Computed example of a mutant assay.
Amino acid sequence: MSVATVGVCALEALLPERGVAALFGDTQIALFRTHDGQVFAIGNQDPYSGANVMSRGIVGSRGDVPTVASPMFKQVFDLRTGVCLDDPDVSLPVYPVSVVDGQVVVGSGDQ
């Protein structure tokens, strides 16, 4: 089964340690570029508040784990897996993401 991909933005549009919201079909996603150049795509909807705000979260890390903290109630999520580090029973959808010729490309479905 092939995965549909969509070019979302230029890599240079993603500032390190900042999030950006984007529409991916009918779904809001949050894109992040870490200080070391990794790019991640997760669902933008905070599972605790229901608000589409994850792109406004605080990017950081716990040990070697790249994270984003929800701007609403401050739960911290692993950007690689979407799992909430404060409550492992809760997670965000994650999307496969790559950089092709300077463009951020997102695929459909959970990784």
Score class of each variant (00 low, 15 high):
Met1Asn: 09
Met1Leu: 09
Val3Cys: 08
Ala4Cys: 06
Val6Ala: 11
Gly7Ala: 14
Cys9Ile: 01
Cys9Ala: 00
Ala10Ser: 02
Glu12Asn: 14
Glu12Asp: 15
Leu14Asn: 03
Leu15Tyr: 12
Leu15Pro: 10
Pro16Thr: 03
Arg18Met: 14
Arg18Val: 14
Gly19Arg: 00
Val20Asn: 05
Ala21Ile: 08
Ala22Glu: 11
Leu23Cys: 07
Leu23Val: 09
Leu23Trp: 14
Phe24Thr: 11
Phe24Tyr: 12
Gly25Gln: 06
Gly25Asp: 10
Gly25Met: 04
Thr27Lys: 13
Gln28Thr: 14
Ile29Thr: 05
Ile29Glu: 01
Ala30Gln: 06
Ala30Met: 12
Leu31Val: 02
Leu31Ile: 09
Phe32Thr: 11
Arg33Asn: 07
Thr34Leu: 06
His35Ile: 12
Asp36Asn: 07
Asp36Thr: 13
Gln38Met: 11
Val39Phe: 14
Val39Thr: 12
Phe40Ser: 01
Phe40Gly: 04
Ile42Glu: 10
Ile42Gln: 10
Asn44Ser: 03
Asn44Trp: 05
Gln45Pro: 00
Pro47Leu: 05
Tyr48Gly: 07
Ser49Trp: 07
Gly50Ser: 04
Gly50Val: 01
Asn52Gln: 04
Asn52Asp: 10
Val53His: 04
Ser55Ile: 05
Arg56Gly: 00
Gly57Thr: 03
Gly57Asp: 09
Ile58Leu: 02
Ile58Val: 02
Arg62Leu: 09
Arg62Pro: 09
Gly63Ser: 09
Val65Asn: 08
Pro66Glu: 15
Ser70Pro: 05
Pro71Trp: 11
Met72Tyr: 15
Phe73Trp: 07
Gln75Ser: 13
Gln75Glu: 15
Gln75Gly: 07
Val76Cys: 08
Val76Glu: 12
Val76Thr: 14
Phe77Met: 06
Phe77Tyr: 00
Leu79Ser: 04
Arg80Tyr: 12
Thr81Asp: 04
Gly82Asn: 08
Gly82Pro: 10
Val83Met: 06
Val83His: 11
Leu85Ala: 06
Leu85Asp: 08
Asp86His: 02
Asp86Asn: 10
Asp87Ala: 12
Asp87Trp: 01
Asp87Phe: 15
Asp87Gln: 07
Asp87Gly: 01
Pro88Gly: 01
Pro88Met: 05
Pro88His: 13
Ser91Asp: 11
Leu92Ser: 04
Pro93Ile: 11
Pro93Tyr: 03
Pro93Cys: 03
Val94Trp: 06
Tyr95Gly: 01
Pro96Val: 10
Val97Tyr: 02
Ser98Arg: 09
Ser98Glu: 07
Val99His: 01
Val104Leu: 05
Val104Cys: 08
Val105Cys: 13
Val106Ala: 05
Val106Arg: 13
Val106Ser: 08
Gly107His: 13
Gly107Gln: 12
Gly109Tyr: 11
Gly109His: 11
Asp110Phe: 14
Asp110Met: 14
Gln111Trp: 15
Gln111Arg: 15
